[in-house]
Amino acid sequence: MIDRIHEAVRARGESEGDGDARTDGGTATVADDDAGSFFGSVSRDFLGSLPFWLPPFALMGFFVYGAIGWNFALSLVNVQQFNQPNYSQLDFDQYLRAFGDPSFISAAQNTAVLLVAFTLACLVVGLLVAILVDRHVRFENTFRTIYLLPMSLSFVVTAQFWLWLYNFDNGLVNVVTQALGLGRYKWISNPELALGAVVFALIWQFSGYAMVVYLAGLRAIPDEHYEAARVDGASTLKMYWRVIVPQLKGATISASVVLMVFALKAFDFLYALAGGFFPPKGTDILSTMMVRQAFSAGNRSYAAAIGIMLFLLAIAIVAPYLTYQYRRGEL
């Protein structure tokens, strides 16, 4: 056998000369010849990786970072519906305008309320449900699947359902409140109630998400921790509060970031609720205001400025999270 193998080796040696001309290894060979000994292998891996990540990166980079840059430029000029941007005169007028605009202030307030109330409520509901589901119940996967179901639906779809649930005459919510002797309410057209109604509907849709994230976090905690707490004589409540919940910090952080991002994208829901660019009174948030200014009112530069501020808001939420992940070596 060995002789035959040696023959094959010789044959391989000859074929290798031709092999260098192969195209897929081409870049690597070039790098090898040009680069010094230390950088030879480093750049070989780098160049080899380019064909894989560069095309997606270019496409994504153009649409994400290119568009944000363009949008920023647009926010520094004053373009209305039909005029062309004049980039020789740049200023922050649109941003100043926003801070003097009562409708911007109220949209910003609504956005803040939505972000905080929605995120906190989803986390609390999600955590409680996750703890219940994690108690070795039967049909656990079925429960989980049902609780997460609303999240797979489009905002447009859930908006239709909630329009009907909040209906004044025969919506379920009013049927229930009336049965409880609380009377009927115009949940959506009353500006005092509308934002709360929207938040409640969104909690219905997304608390399942927080539940899934927490459930994954609970699964990662070894059984010994529960047992140790039991042996130490902790009550169930104390055990969760002092032993288990602190270990869910990572899950809480990642779930809140994603939930806040969902909240910033709630445009689809509000648009579908109203069937147009003007969301119900009292529920206007920055996302809906931006789209309305851009595509309905024609204040494109103003809209661009609002878009940039939304972007900064997202960065303010996400940057600490990414830094945290990076420190933990999870990027």
Partner: peptide, 25 residues
Amino acid sequence: WRGQVGVFTLFIAGIFIPYQAVLLP
């Protein structure tokens, strides 16, 4: 290769972009 975490961070940040910041362009 060196620096891949930097490039990857740019990818990740792309997940969280509010579309309102890019709609007009």
